[in-house]
Design a protein around this nucleic acid. Structure first.
Lengths: 161, 161
DNA sequence: AAAATAGGTGCAAATTTATACAATTATTAA
DNA sequence: TTAATAATTGTATAAATTTGCACCTATTTT
């Protein structure tokens, strides 16, 4: 019998190739590849692979993989823990609807990317140079919320009160 | 009674703030905000908002929003349609395990970004300059597959046969 | 204005997915 | 090697989610 790892790899590839709309379909595909498991096990595999069922453009549901595990690090609003430890942070200041973050040289792109990844619901987008990031908050998101959230994500920002 | 749009906005915000683990929980939150709907309607709203249920780091399921609708454009392997129309593409050539794409000046970053977004299962990553993109394919993904897929996504690449 | 079409919703049922439990197998520690 | 612990899985079931249908309301067309 094939190993579990082989099965997980196969599942991953099948999802990418077929974007099945439910687990039964995927299960059939798996059988054609010689993997005989139950729906229960598939459900567990899917959870482990962080494969998700997503509404697509056509109004249907499909299973898709999440590339680089985009969501694994997304901040979920719980204060308990942040698995990110930004480095390079220097300061955060606001001007009108915008915010500007200063970083150590070369860190701007990386940190901006992390921000895009973690709090897209607060920040519409970022533009990073070498040591400066322009943050464009979403409409209706106030400075306080952004400041508080970043203080959780970036320990170094805590001293900035 | 509040409008549907107000409701959708509220749902979006509640999901971001509470990352609820099922629709019933979210339904309760909605009630506290004065929206009285059934779970069926919530299910439809969630679909419309492209909110997804995702396994998180702790091994649980939570509902999360998808920022900029990351998945809306992800290529799902079906040939029928591509809703992307890249511009600026010039050429694609391979060298060893790598591929190099040439673009019109200034387009490299944008196209590279689109590639990252659309075919992360084929391409491990890209590095873009101003008019050149280095593509690093995933192990086991062959040139043919990449070429074929890009030809679907980038009409201009079709003439490159 | 009337008719036609589209959008929105609840209800109930069907479908789909997750999981408690028990059993089995693999791994690690003693 | 044996005991202890951790992983893996199927079965059956519970839980969760989606959807067909009917009805109602809003919008558009004639």
């Amino acid at each position: 019998m094939k190993t579990k790892n082989e099965r997980l790899t196969t599942i991953w590839n099948l999802v990418n190739d077929y974007a099945p709309d439910n687990q039964e379909k995927l299960l059939e595909l798996l059988r054609t590849k010689g993997f005989n498991i139950t729906q229960a096990t598939l459900s567990r595999d899917i959870k482990q692979l962080k494969i998700i069922k997503s509404p697509n453009a056509e109004g249907n549901y499909i299973y898709i993989t999440t590339g680089q595990n985009i969501y694994a690090n997304r901040y979920n609003g719980k204060k308990e823990k942040s698995n990110l430890s930004f480095t390079g942070f220097i300061s955060l200041e606001f001007s009108g609807a915008l915010a500007v973050m200063k970083t150590r040289p070369g860190y701007a792109m990386g940190i901006a990317s992390d921000i895009d990844l973690c709090i897209p619901h607060l920040i519409l987008g970022t533009i990073a140079g070498d040591d400066t990031i322009l943050l464009v908050p979403r409409e209706g998101v106030d400075r306080k919320k952004i400041k508080e959230t970043l203080e959780i994500l970036i320990p170094a920002a805590k001293t900035e009160n």
